[in-house]
């Protein structure tokens, strides 16, 4: 059933958020430290495990794929709910600090990506 996939993914998110909040609590923060990232790792591992054992029906997978396909529309809705006016009106300080860190980020992609094993490259041809 479709809901199995959605429930599996939801379960991963609940566990991930719980772990993220626990980490946050351990280091004295009332926030989620990497919960979504942990949920993603869990989903990768659990779905691989189920698929290797052929326990993951096509329909259940479609339940996850539906949300993956909704991702861009959700991001569009998110973009439409940002405080764009404030960003425009904040003045030079916010622009210099914000844009400066973005520029630095783009400059660093190549040098830092070079740290990962070269064999990562050919796979992008897939």
């Amino acid at each position: 059933m479709l809901i199995y996939g959605v429930a599996l993914m939801g379960g991963c998110m609940l566990v991930g958020t719980f772990i993220g909040r626990t980490i946050g609590w351990l280091v004295g923060l009332n926030s989620d430290v990497g919960g979504v990232g942990i949920a993603m790792l869990l989903l990768v591992v659990v779905s691989r495990y189920l698929m290797d054992r052929e326990k993951f029906s096509k329909l259940a997978q479609d339940g996850i794929k539906f949300w993956a396909a909704m991702y861009i529309p959700i991001v569009v809705a998110m973009a439409a709910s940002q405080n764009v006016v404030a960003a425009f009106n904040a003045g030079a300080l916010a622009f210099i600090a914000g844009l400066g860190s973005v520029a630095a980020g783009f400059l660093l992609i190549r040098p830092i990506a070079a740290l990962s094993p070269k064999s990562a490259e050919p796979s992008l041809a897939e």
């Binding site: 949920a39 779905s47 991702y71 959700i74 998110m78 973009a79």
Partner: peptide, 15 residues
């Protein structure tokens, strides 16, 4: 576009 659905959709992309 709120945090809940956004994070849910992000998790789904890991599939």
């Amino acid at each position: 576009g709120g945090g809940m659905l956004r994070d849910f959709a992000i998790v789904s992309t890991a599939f």
